[in-house]
Design a protein around this nucleic acid. Structure first.
Lengths: 178, 178
DNA sequence: CTCATCATGTAACCAGTTACATGATTTT
DNA sequence: AAAATCATGTAACTGGTTACATGATGAG
């Protein structure tokens, strides 16, 4: 379970509130890990109980107060421990594949339309990632440290989306009205 | 939620027991959807309650009896309905990316070792998929019907594993002792 | 006046994992 | 004698999603 650890990474990059973390999980961290605010608030509470983070209540003018979380020494230790620990390589789990495999048990044309829709979404995500790459990482792999690491993760998102777009294309080529 | 529907697809290809389904989810269907026997038995029970499948008790010699499940008319309708229904395109969720992004907060060399391990596993899966491709689908995209659909799903697994292997390679190239 | 943004939470539910449990037969 | 295969299940737990709930400020 990596949400705790994804939050630790994000908070080590910069302390923030649950709300701010939710925004980050909608953007950069969201390339590879999604989380809703409900989940983040719940996990932050648990992390606080475990002593991995500390809170500071911050009063704001014209806006609701917020609770700013920071990683504690225990949290830093836990993150370092987890980083060195082996984990399971990802496995793909996509219902699109189930639909393709089962296409003959329904309307194949509807499945083809669904593949086309998925290709469009993946192509849009790919374009968005490429725009971020061009804007934020002009030096490509010549970056160093944290910037390099962020760049490499983005490259993973790009590689995955490219693969999905190409696969959808292959499926369409083989299944489209022939 | 696609496990019900993955089971419907598998049972339409061939009726079988929970145990047999578990075997199939370890192999071909497992390229893109995993399930343990506990989960399969639980879901089969629910599907029986919903009337999507029927059971036949089969006594065997020298082996425990088994319950063979088949898809009912309602199950066929449900599968056809679901096949035409739009679903969410996959999102990647991998802790390896979290580890790469956080590498600077721990021992980067340990993260590099982890990336190398993942590359090895993905390369092994890729080789296994390619072996299946060569053995079971000699005609490539020239297949038709159900065989074509199974082939295209396997191609998706191959595309995904290729992308992971390439990405791990890129990460290693940028992070390895420099 | 309405919608978006900022900000935090609870509660119910669903899906998936891990552990426990049994027991015969066949293979090593 | 031990391990693998065939065969089915229950129970507890964990993680994630959806729905509900509140309330201020600022922009259109």
């Amino acid at each position: 379970m990596a949400l705790e650890h994804a939050i630790l990474v994000s908070l080590r990059e910069r302390a923030g509130s649950g709300y701010e973390l939710t925004r980050r999980f909608d953007k950069s961290i969201g390339f590879f890990w999604r989380a809703t605010h409900q989940q983040i608030y719940r996990v932050l509470k648990r992390m606080l109980d475990e002593g991995w983070v500390t809170v500071e209540h911050v009063a704001q003018e014209g806006r609701p107060d917020k609770k700013v979380y920071s990683v504690s020494a225990d949290g830093r230790d836990e993150l370092a421990r987890w980083l060195a620990e082996p984990g399971e390589p990802v496995e793909l789990r996509t219902d699109l594949a189930v639909k393709i495999r089962g296409a003959g048990f329904g309307d194949p044309a509807a499945v083809v339309a669904e593949v086309r829709r998925h290709r469009r979404v993946h192509a849009e995500r790919l374009a968005a990632y490429r725009a971020i790459e061009a804007a934020d990482f002009p030096d490509g792999p010549a970056h160093t440290g944290q910037t390099l690491h962020q760049y490499l993760v983005l490259r993973g998102g790009i590689a995955a989306e490219e693969a999905f777009v190409a696969w959808c294309g292959e499926v369409l080529g083989a299944m489209e009205p022939s």
